[in-house]
Amino acid sequence: MAKNVLTMHRASIYRLVTDMAKQRLDPEKLLPLTSSVFHILLALSDGDLHGYGIMQEVAEHSGGQIRLGPGTLYGAIKRLLGSGLIVETDQRPDPELDDERRRYYRLTDFGRQVLKAEVQRISKLVSVAQQKRLLPKRT
């Protein structure tokens, strides 16, 4: 009896679980990203980094325009860890040069999907700006 009920409801249970998973892991739902979150994810897209490494990378790829403070950085890291966009990793990129006290962070697959979705969103905005002749078109 219980087996029959389970078989009958298996399809609906499966649908419910997959729907919940899709809803939870839909990158579009997290957009638009805040400036600091976007820059942190972008910094981690090349590989694992510790906090200060992220800070330096962000300053470098923004041409020094964005300088994250420790509070902004770790506030964002806390939220990124909570939403599963990054994880803490035990692997050290360069064990000899490394300080063991530092914690390294890695972009998850879901984090990469979110970053790509955000880049596509920005790209669409750039296209609109080009159509409105606010930007020269790319050749």
Partner: peptide, 11 residues
């Protein structure tokens, strides 16, 4: 995050 923030501040 306190110790890490202090480390980053120090850097």
């Amino acid at each position: 995050y306190g110790s890490e923030m202090t480390q980053v501040f120090h850097d």
